[in-house]
Nucleic acid binder design. Structure first.
Lengths: 224, 224, 224, 224
DNA sequence: AATGAATGAGCCTTCATTCAT
DNA sequence: GATGAATGAAGGCTCATTCAT
């Protein structure tokens, strides 16, 4: 926020102390939550002094906010990236949106970054405002716009729920992956590649909206 | 003279200290997480001594596990509940399953039991095993059975993803409610009643599976 | 303030932890001031745990207040003790007042208690209100009453300054003893017994007020 | 090229960093004590670097000593100032001495230099020696000389106590001003001007010594 | 059986100080 | 000469836990 050197985004090892601190904080906060993570552990993991977090950020909480902000920066803005075909048909836009969303949820650039974001979303607190207004809200409105094009006759609440159905499918793969692995086995879940999931969610959704043959039908075959 | 023993966990009615402790722990852990909740606050809320948690459970962590276990007991088994149409057609079974699931997830205020379970599911740890094997797993297998009946031709991975799409839609309303309210406004989100959401998820899913007209179509239109 | 066992006042060694804590705190605060004294050192000196001060008093500051209050309690109330001859002639009352005041300043029951009181008086802060209203104020008003009897014609400001002259003489022996010893030598200053100082201050004051022969005159001799 | 060296302490006019540091230190130490004042705050107030105090003085404590020394320099020597009547009658000398002393102690607001000196005198430590030998001692001896002239027959201890009575009256107005204001109200105490206090202390003392009519007598009475 | 007084480990933070520039 | 980024020691305080009762 107040620095002029945002060079290489993820700072795993050799970046300067401040960036290493943020990276370590993401990891720690994602793993143990705000209270569970200790600044001592974070500083140790970042190879910095115990006083470093107070020196660079002034506060444990400020570091937390910074970590969440960095996480969503690292994940990229949702409103700019996903919809390459600006004037394309809405079905294509939706397909692109889901593809982008699923791929982000599936194998994000920084796993811990996503994890941290999810944690904050589940229990909004200190940094919720930043994440929501800068990261989530644009995506949500973009999706709503696409869906409105596709379903011009739907009432607002119905449109809202359609959007929730799309987001629910995408978020599931991140929010409930650990439990899924416990139930069905890690191998089974890991076998689902990004492509498979993307195709499935796109098809499931488009089928529900009447823009593709239903799931039971022969793959890309005749109308039946 | 007083009580026989603090043996059987679930207390029938008048709630002695041990049960009040578990109830208070559910509330506290659901609200502040494991580290955030203090045993002092829990004991105070339960009207018990500071040493009560150690006396009854031996450990803060043991109390946590007990609280989560009690939560899933309180929430009820997922495989037994939605049985109304035991041998009914699979579409009806699916409808019943979704109805049950959505209504459980939907509780607007905060049935602390569910909240606590969700927290534990998001970051599986201490008590994940019990919750998963006794609560989630049966539900997941029940859903898988229903879907298999509906879609006999699907491959295993495809079936898995269909189940994830159903669960994703249902869970969304609990896991992402706070953020949804931040984005679209609390009023908009609260306006979605259990009935509306149930109907929507059922219809969206059945439409995707080809067992109902798609969402865009005229609502109460012809059978096709 | 909230305990029911004010048994033996000064608790040097075997009293319960709380009292030992207050005693140690008096010593430490008197010696190093509020910020200079550490709760760790205080607890160590009291043979108590590091958390003891927070357990018994909740705060370092609360302990400070308690220490100051205990100090003035230990020194005794000023309004009740000194004026035995209730209806005696004012000169006698003044003599008694000065005697009491000087002897307290000179060799108080607990040297550190007095020192602590003086410190707080010099830089009033946290505990000033208690000390002033409960200990200093009564003494000041008692003195003012005595002086008003002696000097009925004096204006208020003049009476105030006469009181200050009396108090200034008495307090000097406590507030500036260390410096006095540095200048004139410890032996010289220590040679001044309570009796000598009392007699001197009484005589100096009464002489100034015209109720005794001046200092230069032959001791208790003729009018000159 | 810039300045020769930070050698001579007292700066004449434009105040370079070192001098600003000392000034800021006086203020801070006088207000918050040694531990209470932070070098960061001092440097900030002096518009200097955080490392400036260590660079110029080597130590926080060294800066403290320097500040106290500068304070006593700034306050001026006590033996040289009140010389107006060099060979005047001793009564006049005493009058001049008290006048000088009272006016120095009386400064109503906060000439930080004096405040700092008083603090150090109350708890002699690091810098006590310099202050005493260079500032207090000369004044004390000057006073003793004057009193010896006035009271040639007195024993040494008696003379000492007379000196203490004079000093006690003067110092009272600085050492106990805050408490006095708390007891009698700020307005009452502030109403006592330097002139009033000077006149009172002179008269009180001279009366005690038999060189003026006692306090109770008619104010502007005959010379006697 | 059940309590609450007491403990010690550990947390976040501050602060005087240093070192490379 | 003078700076400011960075450090480590220490401080106040919280909290889960225990031990006599």
């Amino acid at each position: 926020m107040a620095r002029a050197k945002p060079e290489s985004a993820a700072a795993p090892a050799d970046a300067d102390a401040r960036d290493r601190l943020v990276a370590a904080a993401q990891e720690a906060f994602a793993e143990h939550g705000f209270k569970g993570a200790t600044v001592r552990a974070i500083c140790a993991a970042a190879g910095a002094n115990v006083a470093a977090v107070n020196y660079y950020f002034g506060d444990k909480e400020a570091l937390y906010v910074e970590a969440v902000k960095a996480a969503h920066l690292c994940a990229g803005r949702m409103d700019t990236v996903p919809v390459p075909p600006a004037g394309a048909p809405p079905v294509e836009k939706l397909r692109a949106f889901i593809r982008e969303m699923v791929s982000r949820m599936h194998a994000p650039a920084s796993p811990t970054a996503m994890k941290l974001m999810m944690r904050e979303m589940a229990h909004p607190g200190r940094a919720a405002h930043v994440v929501v207004t800068e990261f989530i809200q644009p995506a949500a409105f973009a999706l709503r716009g696409i869906l409105r094009e596709l379903l011009p006759a739907l009432s607002e609440p119905e449109l809202l729920m359609v959007g929730f159905s799309v987001m629910g499918q995408c978020l599931f793969y991140r929010q409930n992956r650990p439990v899924s692995e416990l139930i069905f086995g890690k191998a089974e879940v890991d076998a689902l590649t990004v492509e498979m999931v993307t195709d499935h969610v796109v098809r499931f959704t488009l089928a529900a909206l009447g823009h593709a043959p239903p799931i039971g039908a022969k793959k890309p075959g005749g109308k039946r």
